[in-house]
Computed example of a mutant assay.
Amino acid sequence: MHDVKIFDTTLRDGQQGKGISFTVEDKIKIAKLLDENGVSYIEGGWPGASPKVEAFFKEIKNVELKNAKMVAFGSTRRASNSAEDDVFLNKIVQSGAPVACIFGKSWDLHVHEALKISLEENLDVIESSIAFLKKSGLEVFFDAEHFFDGYKRNPEYAIKCLQAAEAGGAEVLVSVIQMVARCLSKSQR
């Protein structure tokens, strides 16, 4: 039998719905409930994104969780920064969360069009961001953003992105399949 671990994103993704805005107290209550129900990882939000997220990470340090580890969400470093000098990577470390989940570009189109950097530079961005977080003592998940679109267009490069994350020390490689959400939204029309 395999050990199943649940990674919950309610405190970040869940509050992106229309009319939903959790208070810090709401987020603490939800985190406690998720922990009581055996959730392994609770993504608390993106440190530095808002004062509310900062306050949540400050307060959740005082809560004893029995099952769950808190996760700070974010992105790889900006190409113009070193990992050590990247404000948002440092905010993840300063959050006190023992786990980081960072996303990075794995679709060559986005590397060229959104980041406006070379493919090789993006691989360095991924690897060095994760290595910095690992050096800071965090468990790291790498979310390969738009992996399947990238794989369809350039499979060799998409795989290189995963390999760069692994080389940086990521324990878990993640890619969310967006097709489910697309199908659900089409069926509601």
Rank of each mutant, 00 (worst) to 15 (best):
A49L: 09
A49R: 04
P51K: 10
V53T: 13
E54Y: 04
A55P: 06
F57P: 14
F57T: 13
F57S: 12
F57I: 15
K58S: 14
K58I: 10
I60R: 05
I60P: 03
N62T: 14
V63M: 10
V63H: 09
V63R: 09
E64N: 10
K66P: 11
K69H: 05
K69P: 00
K69N: 08
M70H: 13
M70G: 02
A72I: 13
F73P: 08
T76H: 11
R77P: 05
R78P: 04
N81M: 06
A83N: 07
E84S: 02
D85P: 05
D85M: 03
D85V: 01
D85T: 01
D85W: 00
D86K: 05
D86A: 08
V87D: 15
V87S: 12
V87E: 15
V87L: 12
F88R: 11
F88Y: 14
F88C: 11
L89M: 04
L89V: 09
K91D: 14
K91Q: 08
Q94W: 02
Q94F: 01
Q94G: 03
Q94Y: 00
Q94K: 12
G96P: 04
G96I: 12
G96C: 02
A97I: 04
P98Q: 13
P98D: 07
V99S: 04
F103M: 14
G104D: 06
K105F: 09
S106T: 09
W107D: 08
W107Y: 11
W107E: 04
L109N: 10
H110W: 11
H110Q: 06
H110L: 02
V111G: 07
H112Q: 10
H112N: 14
E113V: 15
A114G: 00
A114R: 10
A114E: 13
K116M: 09
K116W: 04
I117Y: 02
S118I: 01
L119R: 15
E120F: 01
E120D: 11
E121H: 14
N122T: 10
L123A: 07
L123H: 11
L123E: 12
D124F: 06
V125F: 07
I126C: 07
S128I: 00
S128P: 01
S129K: 02
S129Q: 07
I130K: 09
I130H: 02
A131F: 04
L133S: 09
K134V: 09
K134S: 00
K135F: 08
K135Q: 05
E139P: 00
V140P: 02
V140G: 05
V140K: 11
F141C: 01
F141M: 12
F142S: 05
D143Y: 09
A144M: 09
E145V: 07
E145M: 03
F147K: 06
F147G: 03
Y151A: 06
R153W: 07
P155Y: 05
E156C: 01
Y157K: 11
A158G: 14
A158S: 11
I159T: 10
K160N: 14
K160R: 15
L162N: 12
L162I: 03
A165M: 02
A165K: 04
A165T: 13
E166M: 07
A167E: 08
G168L: 12
A170V: 10
A170E: 08
A170R: 12
E171C: 03
V172P: 03
V174P: 02
V174M: 13
S175G: 01
V176M: 14
I177H: 15
I177C: 10
Q178V: 13
Q178S: 14
V180N: 05
V180L: 13
V180G: 06
A181T: 09
